[in-house]
Computed example of a mutant assay.
Amino acid sequence: MSYNIITILGPTATGKTTLAAHLAAKINGEVISADSRQVYRGMDLGTGKDYEDYFVNGVEVPSHLVDIEDAGAHYNVYRFQTDFIEVFEAIQSRNKFPVLCGGSGLYLEAVLKDYKLIQVPPNKKLREKLEGKSLEELTEILKSIKPGLHNITDVETDRRAVRAIEIEMYYKEHPEIDTSMPEINSLNIGIKFDRDSRRRRITGRLKQRLEDGMLDEVKKLLDSGVTPEQLIYYGLEYKYLTLHIIGTLSYDEMFRQLEIAIHQFAKRQMTWFRGMEKRGTKICWLDGYMPLEEKLEKIQQLFSK
């Protein structure tokens, strides 16, 4: 297969950015971040923006979709897909190779599976017309308006099938909407550690970031005018550190609850990646303990197959 992008994915604290940057440096590439929180300016330690990871042998590897939105705003997967297309095509136009890197499963799948993410409103009349039809009938209707049906999750249930028909009908009635995605042929590399190692890495990284000033980062955001409610919305580090700063949690309560929340988050990430595999996305998993040079060599071997 001829790949036009390499994707590095995995749960939090697995060293994805370092690997992506070194790979990009080796293959004349640029990194595209697929992280739902690293898009926000000023949210650095809490989102794991390890800027130094983008420097390979003293040279900065170009990166994209990091620090593109003000803290307090709401970025979403619709915007990500649009921004990704723009960056992906720009990288290709420079004869560079795109390396997608992140742990936000929905963001990754939105581009790897060619999701059409225009927000389509409900069509009450159409739903009434389709009511009572069997899943087989709904599937045939969907195939008639979408001959290249390849996403079987669209017809897993009656409800999904009706929604898929509704979306396709909306696109047909609004041809001015551009729902096209560039062709994506991705070599997907997953990095994972065993459960105990992952937990140790998460706890160690949390302690390090607190020592590096993550609490001061949250205080600075609050002082800049971002409200506690806005920071709590972002979850994990920003939620629990804010709750500590406003007096809801003691430091020990904050640390303990945040540690548990990050462990649960990493578990959900792995569940999502397994779901991606079930939905047809091939992921080649590498042991996180494999030395960096061996990882790079393995990726290049897979790429050249």
Rank of each mutant, 00 (worst) to 15 (best):
G280W: 05
W272F: 15
D212A: 14
F273L: 14
E140I: 05
E253I: 07
A73G: 05
L215C: 03
H64P: 06
Q257F: 11
K129C: 07
E60D: 08
L302W: 11
M214P: 04
E259N: 15
G247A: 09
L222M: 11
D194W: 09
A73R: 15
S144W: 00
T203V: 14
E136H: 01
I145D: 01
F255I: 15
R37M: 12
C284L: 14
T242D: 07
L215W: 02
L221W: 06
K124Y: 10
S180R: 08
P122G: 04
L135A: 02
D154N: 03
Y3N: 11
L258Y: 09
I6T: 15
G132L: 03
E293S: 13
V87H: 04
G103N: 06
R200I: 08
I145E: 01
T271Q: 12
M43T: 08
Y40W: 10
G190S: 10
V226G: 06
L221G: 05
I91V: 10
Q119N: 14
K113Q: 12
V61L: 07
A13K: 07
V66W: 03
M276W: 12
G46W: 05
M276C: 13
Y171T: 04
R163Q: 05
E166T: 01
I32D: 00
V59T: 12
E60K: 15
D178C: 05
K26G: 06
T203A: 12
R160A: 08
E229C: 03
N95L: 11
V155D: 03
Y234Q: 12
N185D: 09
D212T: 07
E253Q: 15
I202M: 03
K282I: 13
E173I: 00
F97K: 10
R198M: 15
G190Q: 05
K295E: 02
E277H: 13
N185R: 14
E176G: 10
Y171E: 01
T179E: 13
D67L: 04
I118H: 12
V59N: 12
N28C: 08
D154T: 00
L249P: 05
R205H: 10
R37A: 13
R279A: 14
Q119A: 14
L222T: 05
A71M: 00
K219S: 06
R201L: 15
I91F: 06
E277L: 11
K129L: 11
R209K: 14
E211Q: 12
D70S: 11
M43I: 09
I5D: 02
Y40A: 07
E237K: 08
S36N: 10
Q269E: 14
Q257D: 15
